[in-house]
Amino acid sequence: MFQTVMAELTIGFGKTIEIFVLTLLGALPLGLIISFGSMSKFKPLKAVVRFMIWVIRGTPLMLQLIVVYYGPGLIFGTNIWGIGNEGRFVAVLAAFIINYAFYFSEIYRGGIESIPKGQYEAGQVLGLTKRQIFFNVVLLQVIKRILPPMGNEIITLVKDTSLARVIAVYEVIWAGQNFIKSAGLIWPLFMTAVYYLAFTGLVQIVLGRIEKKLSYFN
């Protein structure tokens, strides 16, 4: 029985990791782009982005998942996500990436705004372009500064993946809970905690390594 449970949980956790990794891959760059929008000198763009940040951060991710999945169908009369498990998985990714990108964008903005003006000016007087100043001077300093708050969000993301089941994406908690109905067992559900702990532990180690790598400057 133990092996059956573990095999099943591992399948579920595979999905969890998939959501986690793909969300990061999408939300990390998208968040940076959104942060540029939120700092834009073009007022209407800035206003729209700020409004979106307010909406996304001010409503539960669970609700966003439902809206993203069912919304297009209700509004346009077609399910844009495709059918079956795959469609639901894509919808989950879309909702997670949007949600986390907006959260990340605020962290990026805080980091970018914390870089002293003198860094930009030193780049400018040396004839660097805005792009070169951002990528060659500012970015690494921003990464160093945002690593702690970013780490918190990333750990939260690991746990938030369990919300995917709201629109019936099979992940590890669901896998554990199934055993209550099918075999009257409660411990498989508790066992899922071990998976989460192992994974968040790993994430923390990786973040710690990066932090240490960047500790050579301040």
């Binding site: 003198g118 000016e121 300093q141």
Partner: peptide
């Protein structure tokens, strides 16, 4: 060329 009061070296 410009040299600032606060140096403004690139720390990394």
């Amino acid at each position: 060329g410009m040299v600032f009061q606060q140096f403004n070296l690139f720390p990394q």
